[in-house]
Amino acid sequence: MLQIKNLKATIDGKEILKGINLEVKAGEVHAIMGPNGSGKSTLASVLSGKPGYEVTGGEVIFEGKNLLDFSPEDRAREGIFLAFQYPVEIPGVSTTNFMKTSLNEIRKYRGLEPISSVEFLKLMKAKAKLVELDMAMTSRAVNVGFSGGEKKRNEIFQLAMMEPKLSVLDETDSGLDIDALRIVSEGVNKVRNSKNAFVVITHYQRLLNYIVPDYVHVLSDGQIVTSGGKELAYKLEEMGYDWVTNND
């Protein structure tokens, strides 16, 4: 589904990604761990097409297409979803309106008619239930006045609504209490199937108890320095990052 080959990127002339290689196949879950400032969010941003980053080398192939040629909105329409580490507040725009516009823009891109109000409402209700989101939240302005945990849950709600092929979750677990963590993870697990894939960025092995990864990668100073199975996460939890970065 996704091949990242020797990806290099800079921001304000400073090189942050220094040659990333990663292959994600349909049905897989990849965890990316690594110290603060190692470039995890930068990788997520570059994949989603956030302005301000310059790709200086390498390529990203998504479903056979050169992803870097697409605008951010077209990447989303092609099936890439980024759950933000810091979800943005949008005063005056309700989550309902936001999601309806989103779905219709995606449908338009795919040559489909706009979704009917009845169908949309049904979908909203079903997905809200999936992530145990109070429907009342969807009539409030997107993320405005939401608690940290509510914002993250709202990200996963959007994910469920959009049914992307590849989801990149950037520290969706930080700021969640135990119950919310379980709910959000269960939500992801319910969405998970053999046709989609997940890249889960996290600092905590805890999340990986819920969303069990097929692979764990350690990102350090802009490169993946080691990869392994889920047991790698336990080892990191136990020993910290020093042993990986030092070995390197």
Partner: peptide, 27 residues
Amino acid sequence: KEQLFYLKARGIGEKEGKKLLIFAFAN
């Protein structure tokens, strides 16, 4: 710009995104 990018990341194009944000501002 952050808000506009957030909308784009959900598949909403530049024009629709701006419309949504300006509408919210005016509303």
